[in-house]
Design a protein around this nucleic acid. Structure first.
Lengths: 145, 145, 145, 145
DNA sequence: TTTT
DNA sequence: TTTT
């Protein structure tokens, strides 16, 4: 196999996270983040292009997102690309791409972005749940090696 | 803006690259690569999921792709996520996501994958063209600092 | 060859950058940044470990560091690991490890950290100099593909 | 805090891993990997510089390293930088830097590199042990989201 | 549509 | 020597 699918983003939330709780209590949160880059067009004019990324987080990271992330905030995200397919109403195969994040660090953001601004923290998510206490809550989640 | 949009992939080409030469000689190549991951389903059965990524490379990296990359080969890719929008024939806004690669390293692959197998190399692309001689050709492209 | 040497850091400057201008006008800046992680020790007590990284930047990135980076600020850095060897006065081979950064994004930091706080920007460095106008200055540095 | 300490390497093992089993059965393996880059010196001559990285892996990743990694093999590694300090016999503070890997994917390597050549796989390590069965053994280690 |  |  020998494959790697890794995404690293630093950007700002375009909306507050939307959280759903599935059967069994499984939590999932979704939110868009924007990244921007500048470039010169062929006339030498400065242009900016904004990319929107649909972020999905599960389990304790979803709880963290629900509690602490707000529109406008800046976040560091690690995750993987996932493309889902579906059929539209004409029966044509369509695709949507999202970033499934497994690591999230708040970096601050707009000064009115919410209570957590100025108190950035890190959180991690694992399928098996590495810790009952979310790393985000200030609980250590790992040995230093 | 303080933003980062970075993708790192290791995967196998699903097809040979398709190369086009635009007006002015600008080259662009496209090819799909697959990444895979294993997981257990709810019945404890091992499952595999394959993700397909549409890779786009420009300029000298496109020339490299044309000459050296073949279906089946394994590559390391660095790039960024780019989502393009278009209207389908019903006038509905649709999106396609691709990875614009700016760094590419061949890692080998199937033993019949092509001439370059067993001689993996690295290539880089820059908007301004850092070097006439593509790094891939064996020319050094950078000072060691 | 087929090798990759890539480092991604988000941390705070422990000191203002120290800048030197070599013969020919080549600029180099150095500064330490700290990253921290929490973990539980064997008694279940929360501990924090701080890692210090010696960052080196060349050319226009060094100019950017000199002008805009200050002790306390938070930065995103991409670069590579480089270990230099030297002989100490007893003639024993010693090693020092540093991170040669080729990409730098300011993320803010302490509110008194300097003039640029609240106005984070991105800068890139290339051996060949991709652009006379540093990206950091607000000039676009790249086409969007 | 808001910090990130992430390293991504693709390189070749310079030696077979050395494995130790600590009290309590905790396993740790160490091995060096080389990354190389080409550059032109001031006379326009092609030069190559090789960087050596000391890799440390713990727990099930150490078992994987012991069983499957051999000198010459190519590996993809994700981890973090860790600098340890100690006093030399003259009482001077010295530092050593290593990469603590938490993710490892075999990419092949020299054709005589060992039994696993041609059968690259991925393994992950977690402080809490995400799975009794190491991912490497062919057991799925994660849900696909 | 790849690879194992 | 930073930051929380």
């Amino acid at each position: 196999m020998a494959s790697v699918n890794k995404v690293i983003l630093v950007g700002n939330l375009g909306k507050d996270p939307e959280v759903r709780h599935l059967e069994g209590g499984l939590a999932v949160a979704r939110f868009p983040i924007a990244t921007s880059e500048s470039f010169k067009d062929k006339n030498g004019q400065k242009q900016e292009r904004t990319e929107w990324h649909n972020i999905v987080v599960w389990r304790n990271l979803a709880e963290v997102a629900e509690k602490y992330l707000k529109k406008g905030q800046s976040v560091y995200i690690e995750g993987k690309i996932r493309t889902n397919s579906y059929q539209d109403k004409e029966g044509i195969q369509r695709y949507t791409t999202e970033i499934v994040a497994d690591n999230l660090t708040m970096l601050g953001g707009r000064t009115d972005a919410g209570a957590n601004n100025g108190n950035p923290e890190t959180a991690s998510s694992n399928a098996g749940g590495r810790s009952e206490a979310p790393a985000f809550e200030g609980e250590p989640d790992d040995l230093p090696f």
